[in-house]
């Protein structure tokens, strides 16, 4: 038996929007502690790990561990239905997800907070997905950069109009994002900056060792679709380890993206 209710249904919509282009199908793993997902993109270069802790739900009940395979695009389509009506407040639907006893379908029910006489039911088919789970050990990172998520998003977008890859380098100077393409080169340096009005506007750089790694911008740009989930993003870098780009979901958990660095032949 799984029942969950999320007052901020918009949050689940944002989560789906952030991962559906990277991963087509994924297993949602439900346990008493919460709702999680780990899935790789089709080329097995990037991975998304999602955690939504049970405490973050208005109501959460999961009697036995279960895994629900879903097509994320289909789920995003269904969740979009909750927000397409302009009269009912689209951004705050309540949501309940109840798998049927056979667990072959999942019933997604939206109830709008401000028009409680309207209930929309959606039933989505579940799928059997043979997904490979990777064991991700805790690691010490050479450098951890926390910066405004909108700034990171803008840098990735700007650089991808010039080159295909980004070199992220952390030194005492700050964090440098560089690219190179047919038309020229681009460098953006962000220095540590904690003298801001709001804490979410700060750029904080923790560096144990200088580090410089190259990544495909296509993936970085895909990760930045999670920007609406959090004002800040944390980028953890270690030489010869995949980068972790983390968006915290307030009081609930996180979406983490892992991306393997490019390596010189």
């Amino acid at each position: 038996m799984l029942e969950l209710r999320l007052v901020q249904g918009s949050l689940l919509k944002k989560v789906l929007e952030s991962i559906k282009d990277l991963v087509n199908d994924a297993n949602f793993d439900c346990s008493a502690t919460g709702f999680s997902l780990q899935a790789m993109d089709s080329s097995h270069v990037a991975l998304v790990a999602l955690l939504l802790r049970s405490e973050g739900f208005e109501h959460y009940r999961c009697d036995r561990n279960m895994s629900m395979g879903m097509n994320l695009n289909n789920m995003a389509k269904m969740l979009k239905c909750a927000g397409n009506d302009d009269i009912i407040t689209p951004s705050r639907p309540m949501m309940a997800v109840t798998p049927s006893p056979s667990c072959s379908k999942v019933q997604v029910r939206f109830t709008c907070c401000f028009a409680q006489d309207k209930i929309a039911d959606f039933e989505m088919k579940l799928m059997d997905i043979d997904s490979e789970h990777l064991g991700i050990p805790e690691a010490e990172y050479h450098a951890i950069v926390r910066m405004p998520s909108s700034e990171f998003s803008r840098i990735c977008k700007d650089l991808s109009s010039i080159g295909d890859t980004v070199v992220i380098s952390v030194t005492k100077e700050g964090v440098r994002f560089s690219t190179r393409g047919d038309i020229g080169t681009a460098n953006v340096v962000c220095r540590q900056n904690t003298t801001v009005d709001k804490p979410e506007e700060a750029t904080i750089i923790e560096m144990n060792e200088p580090v410089s790694l190259t990544f495909a911008l296509r993936y970085m740009n895909s990760f930045t679709k999670a920007t609406p989930l959090s004002n800040t993003v944390t980028i953890s870098l270690s030489s010869e380890l995949p980068v972790v780009v983390e968006y915290k979901i307030a009081e609930m958990g996180y979406v983490r993206f892992y991306l393997a660095p490019k390596i010189e032949d």
Partner: peptide, 14 residues
Amino acid sequence: AQNQPKLSAFFSLR
């Protein structure tokens, strides 16, 4: 030239 390794080069399958 740069090579794009897969994640399995860094993490093991569980």
